[in-house]
Nucleic acid binder design. Structure first.
Lengths: 233, 233
DNA sequence: GCAAAAGTGTTTCCGGTACACCCATGT
DNA sequence: ACATGGGTGTACCGGAAACACTTTTGC
């Protein structure tokens, strides 16, 4: 193979920010490193880009290794390339963020990587520039969720409208009006009622809905002002 | 220096998508390659990341080399990393896009790189995945400009409101209502009237405004629905 | 019966849009 | 005078926000 006459080949890493929702709180899947460098500290799940691998494939591989999850929302966030961001060696990191249904996870895979779900409020300090990455991912998530219908990605197969509302309240750390929320969501035609009731609930059992997959495809690409009232500072 | 025991160091390139506005049309600064590979074809301006250089600095360096412009809007778009995107050698490319005031350019620098401003409608076919990059940059520009006040970045120091309107009409290829546009822009308090009149205009000379730098800083980070009526498909 | 959560309806208000009219300038 | 383009005001309409009321369930 022909090569460029350029000397500076650089190590390319990927890091994954994995968001999940447990019904109450927005959580991150973080690993407590049992390997060098920075053994014993917390970090995002990462890895290196292989020679014969697309960027997106590499991100999927890393996500799968940790969780066993394959088909999920995965989007490139940003590439971080400060000279000294990794003290071991010059490395640039292409960062992806994922929204996963926390129930789909493979507990064995997670355990073997020494990973845990940690609420955003309890997030420990992370190595390198991983704190900045998380901050930026959260910002992007808020941005996206206000304009596109991606909140569903954090839900299980079937869910009630109040459950969905909790996702949005967790994303924006803000209370939303139950009545307006319900009306807005239903007006999008994105949900299909299953007739079933939420057995988990203690009091009045809400109706379980599932996603209208067809409509959802449109909403992912189309711009939709989901929550204009939320300031995206 | 310690190194990771990982073999796959990869060539990291940067490409810059440079938008400009000539008063009528949205333009791209493209180069007709007088070097290999793909000599004679059109491409974005690019370069390789150096060992001791931040990503953002590298993008600024490339932009400066081509235009002589330093302080301008520059934002990382996305990193492109398909295995075969560069037929010469595996290379990932971190892409930035810039919004420049077309009058600030250094014509000598541009000429020496064999570059020209080309209207979006006359864009030639570009090498590699550069067409996709431009497409995506345009999408991002439309997205951003609808939510944040970045249209000003394409304007000269002083400008009239109708001139600014033409920028937005060029970005969205859509006619906007003169009266509503003016009211919306003025309501933001982003413009400061200079009292001077636009000498270029043939008929009624419009008032020249300049940017309220302080307010502008707020608007860059804050979310503002500038043009909710524009679909951001 | 009561508390807690889910579901539905109504009114108000603001902001976007569409429109009409006036002003300044050069020919 | 008139054509061209800049500047300001107003009325309407739709969607978001703020409210009240009813229903279901478990204790």
């Amino acid at each position: 193979m022909i090569h460029y006459t350029h000397p500076n080949r650089i190590l390319v890493a990927l890091d994954c920010i994995i968001f999940g929702f447990d019904g109450e709180e927005l959580k991150l899947l973080l690993i407590k490193r049992n390997f060098e460098p920075e053994r014993g500290k917390w970090s995002l799940m990462g890895g290196f880009l292989k020679e014969d691998e697309d960027l997106e494939s590499a991100a999927q591989r890393i996500l799968f290794d940790l969780t066993g999850i394959t088909n999920t929302y995965l989007e490139q966030l940003q590439t971080f390339g400060a000279v000294n961001r990794d003290p071991v060696e010059r490395t640039i990191s292409v960062v992806y963020y994922a929204l996963v249904n926390i129930q789909d996870q493979d507990l064995n895979a997670i355990r073997s990587h020494n990973a845990s779900w940690i609420g955003l409020n309890e997030k420990p300090n992370l190595i390198f520039d991983h704190n900045t990455m998380v901050e930026q991912a959260l910002h992007r998530l808020r941005y996206k969720a206000a304009l596109h219908a991606i909140g569903f990605e954090l839900m299980p197969e079937k869910f009630t409208i109040p459950q969905l509302q909790k996702v949005y309240e967790a994303i924006y750390t803000k209370q939303l009006d139950r009545r307006n929320f319900s009306r807005k969501i239903l007006s999008t035609d994105l949900l299909i009622g299953t007739g079933e009731k939420d057995t988990a609930s203690v009091t009045k059992k809400g109706q379980l809905y599932r996603l209208n997959a067809e409509k959802y495809q449109q909403y992912l690409t189309d711009y939709v002002s989901f929550f204009p009232e939320l300031t995206l500072a």
